[in-house]
């Protein structure tokens, strides 16, 4: 689970990633206009955790990853990986990284790419010889080992990207937009692989702008919007999976019945009316309140025509938090709301 950051606290033994008040500002154009790509983002990650780093395009996900991997210097804040500063190359020995667009040397064969990467990781020749074919087979590239990458499809390049990220047998895998450009079959296979990697005990840091793609894999999330973390915490808690909700559709005879039902719903903060059109009212309420709704509906002459359980999705969570964040921003606050984990 993600942990609320505690400034100056000693990192616990299973903490593998700590991001403290990360900010990155770029200067663009001739006048050096300031663009704040990431603003005061903080979170931690523990061993075995699968963290979704989510947000729409341009929200600061890739910038954060580049800071994390030492490709760009943060304007402010600290990042530590396995207790070492992120710019220390040795911290990266335990990481497997797959970039959003896995561009490799297209004149090389996948075996040659992996051999090169293996040398950079300091793997001896015997280990490379043993692991490279094994990984390529595991990722379904056994048939293409002797072809250069020039003729590879996007999906095949993605697999090479994953294979090279697993070569050093990493503790932490960082996948930047892993589903990007994959067909439905490819997405399903990649999801299965990520579950497999998670079950092997590895930690995964995934970014995606397609929230539903990672919902089934992640156990916690950080959601970014315009460079600010607008939600952070365990997915179950953020999606309120501990609470059951129901959506109900009722036929209402008149305005008085609508008012009566609205008054009933005001007793539960999470409840609310979604729509009222031509005598049909749709609403949402905690499942435990359904008997009261049913009784009140009978009293005011309304008829319950449909009732089904509903679950929050990441998209809904994002929209809710984004709207809240925008309101908070308008009021002069950019601070993340901390989500359910705080």
């Amino acid at each position: 689970m993600t942990e609320p950051r505690a400034g100056g606290a000693t990192p616990s033994s299973d903490e593998i990633l700590r991001v403290d008040h990360l900010s990155k500002t770029f200067r663009t154009g001739l006048l050096g206009r300031r663009v704040e790509a990431v603003r005061d983002v903080s979170f931690t990650m523990r061993q075995g955790q699968v963290l979704g780093y989510l947000g729409p395009n341009g929200s600061g996900k890739t910038t954060s990853i580049k800071c994390l991997l030492g490709l760009i210097q943060p304007s402010a804040g600290d990042i530590s990986l396995f207790g070492l500063p992120s710019r220390d190359p040795m911290a990266r020995a335990r990481i497997g990284y797959m970039p959003e667009h896995p561009y490799f040397y297209d004149y090389l064969k996948p075996t040659e790419v992996l051999d090169y990467v293996g040398q950079l990781f300091g793997l001896d020749a015997d280990t490379r010889k043993r692991r490279i074919p094994m990984l390529l087979e595991r990722l379904g590239l056994g048939h293409a080992m002797d072809r250069t990458l020039r003729g590879f499809s996007k999906g095949m390049l993605q697999r090479v990207g994953i294979a090279q990220s697993l070569l050093n047998d990493p503790d932490l895998l960082i996948f930047d937009e892993p589903m990007s450009g994959l067909d439905p079959v490819g997405r399903k296979e990649l999801r299965d692989l990520m579950v497999e990697l998670r079950d092997e005990g590895r930690s995964l840091f995934l970014t995606s702008h397609i929230l539903s793609d990672v919902e089934s894999v992640c156990d916690s999330v950080v959601i970014l919007n315009q460079g600010v973390a607008i939600a952070e915490g365990p997915l179950d808690s953020l999606l309120r999976r501990d609470k059951l909700f129901s959506a109900a559709t009722l036929k209402v005879p008149d305005e008085a019945a609508i008012s009566a039902l609205q008054q009933l719903l005001s007793a539960w903060p999470e409840a609310g009316v979604d729509q009222v059109t031509e005598g049909v009212m749709t609403l949402r309420l905690p499942s435990g309140a359904v008997p009261q709704l049913s009784a009140r509906a009978a009293e005011v002459g309304a008829t319950l025509v449909e009732l089904h359980p509903v679950r929050d999705t990441l998209e809904e969570l994002f929209m809710r938090k984004a709207v809240t964040g925008a309101t908070a921003g308008a009021e002069g606050s950019d601070a993340p709301d901390g989500g359910g984990a705080r």
């Binding site: 020995a93 090169y116 300091g122 793997l123 692991r131 050093n168 047998d169």
Partner: peptide
């Protein structure tokens, strides 16, 4: 690492020379 007994030699002058030689 824990999973497959993979040993990574990442520190020291020899490891550094190996990386330079790989590039």
């Amino acid at each position: 690492t824990r999973y497959a007994g993979v040993t990574l030699q990442v520190t020291g002058p020899r490891a550094s020379l190996n990386r330079i030689s790989a590039v």
